[in-house]
Amino acid sequence: MDIATLQTLNSARAARRASVAVTDLATGRTQAFVEGEPLTPEWYAAISGALRSGRPTLAVVGERSLFINVHLPPPRIVVIGAVHISQALAQLAPVAGFDMSIIDPRTAFATEERFRGVELIADWPEDVLPGRPLDRYTALAALTHDPKIDDFPIRAALEGGCFYVGALGSRRTHAARMERLRLAGVAAEDVDRIRAPIGLDIGAASPAEIAVAILAEIIAALRNREVGWGREAS
């Protein structure tokens, strides 16, 4: 691999953009493709297949043996609300391989003591998210029940294409939330992407159990997502 290709891959990884490295095993030549760039037409099917599954693979295209390595940004969870469920989730998420951060403007909730060792941002999502946009490799869980805090990040997560958007609240709370978002101009199919009531239905009762249900739902969304950025070069 030449150093320029390696630098391209590392820059894409640092910027949380998906990339693939395609190596021709006969010649040893490696080409890097970064998310959003057009893909070589003859390799399109093989590359987009590897991207969708997220799994590196060998492929034979024409006469050539290729190895396609896939570099997806590591998944992370952004939680809105420094609540009891978030305390449990903050302990579970790293075990399952997720980076996690918590945003809550209510300084009574967002205390260092309650969230030791967790990235905790005691500020409004409106002020935090523009500097660290939600992306397709991020799961958003909105856990405050408070529209003043939750609605903005939910919209930002839908716009940013987060692979998971979940919101805490009863069916009635969620119906009201859907109505507000639609009136605010969010497309109906986007509103329908919100998982509510949040978490897999395992009959969770305690905050820790609800955290498990949320994490399980996030993992299911991650493993079933469609990743491809899919443009074929013309």
Partner: peptide
């Protein structure tokens, strides 16, 4: 991959092995 780039920048010769 980060280490490979860093080592190369430091002037070291570098090989990269990948499970295929």
């Amino acid at each position: 991959l980060q280490i490979a780039e860093t080592w190369h920048r430091q002037g070291r010769t570098v090989a990269l092995a990948t499970v295929i």
